[in-house]
Design a protein around this nucleic acid. Structure first.
Lengths: 202, 202
DNA sequence: TTCAAATAATTGAACACTCATTTTATATTG
DNA sequence: CAATATAAAATGAGTGTTCAATTATTTGAA
């Protein structure tokens, strides 16, 4: 065949994972088969098995990839902003922004939630990811609390609430957004967070 | 065969729908097949097709059943409570209660969210259901606002926020709850709602 | 540099399974 | 008898996976 291009594992494996992700957006988590991924990439289904041994492994590696992607996108720090108040505002703006919410395709993202109810492995991974995020926020809130930017006595609960509100944004966009642009309710959610934090910058 | 029991459509159809729901809790939305439902009910797969014509119809009728169940469970009114302040508190307590959140099995519930990204029909049904709930809350908030129990200028946004927080409770229980009982964060979420509503009963 | 041997990448065909659905046949009830 | 309820069997498409065959690339020695 003319079009055949040989690549090695270092190139092929990520390519397959990317293809998996792309097909998944269209077909859904459980609607995505090895054949469909192979078709999309123009390769043979058994090549995917060759690299990942089983579909189960393929799925686990994809999740790993996504979690890494998620975590790395959250490592954006605002160290360059010296003023506490300004930096706090930048953090909150980012957490409730459209770009942030689209780090992972929402359809895919809900697919994993859905699976987490039947697959303890996946539940664990999702849970760790959110605990990681909450812990990050917890530390940030501790700092801003000490500095008097916010005023909360239960930093843990406040961090929980922010993660939950961020997550709720996704839900709202899908079912209650209607024609309203994302930013409208994002603003409402952010204000709710600020109200709980007793922040008076706005 | 000895154990064969003939029933008519009025008995068989609801029985099949109930069986569908039960199997779905274990197997997931897309993991549930006609055969599995038939096995669970001790009947032949083709009997299910005979009554519902296709799996698609079966699924749509199940959703209808669930939405009815959801709506009817939300028709609980507190008309017997005459004092506005007490009735408002009862409403809020219900919205953030464990019983309420378990009206529908959370795994099934997330299954429909997941499907809504690939099936406009399902998205529409879910969306209508939540719009219906928000509208109910909107009217309630209007009333309590007029009565001075709460103080908000954007009742629509406030209703949005309450639905979102209720929904967030589900998310939190699955991924951030860990060993913590449901009620702990439910209380946090409720307080956040009350903070936004500027209610000072607590 | 050349050329065969070794290694890796890729394909093809087959397997045993499950799926939703259709068609045909049998039992039960009114 | 006629209508309905149920079962049985068969269909065709799709699933993940295995194994052997084929093609491309790299390696190593002459």
């Amino acid at each position: 065949m003319a079009g055949r291009k040989n690549k090695n594992a270092d190139l092929r494996k990520p390519e397959i994972l990317e293809g998996y992700y792309t097909v998944m957006i269209k077909e859904g988590l459980e609607g995505t088969s090895i054949s469909k991924i192979a078709d999309h990439l123009g390769i043979h289904p058994s090549l995917i098995i060759h690299y990942f041994k089983s579909k189960e492994n393929l799925r686990l590696e994809l999740i790993e990839m996504m979690v890494d992607k998620f975590k790395s996108s959250h490592l954006i720090t605002f160290d360059h902003i010296t003023d506490d108040r300004t930096r706090f505002k930048a953090l909150m703006d980012m957490l409730f922004s459209y770009e942030w919410s689209r780090t992972v395709d929402p359809g895919v993202h809900y697919g994993f939630y859905y699976q987490s109810f039947r697959d303890e492995n996946i539940r664990r991974i999702c849970s760790d990811m959110f605990l990681w995020l909450r812990n990050y926020l917890y530390k940030e809130l501790m700092y801003y609390n000490r500095k008097g930017i916010i005023d909360v006595d239960d930093e843990q609960g406040a961090a929980d609430l922010i993660v939950t509100l961020m997550e709720g944004l996704e839900f709202h966009a899908q079912f209650l957004g209607e024609k309203q642009p994302f930013e409208v309710f994002a603003e409402t959610a952010k204000k709710a967070a600020l109200a709980v934090l007793h922040n008076n910058t706005v």
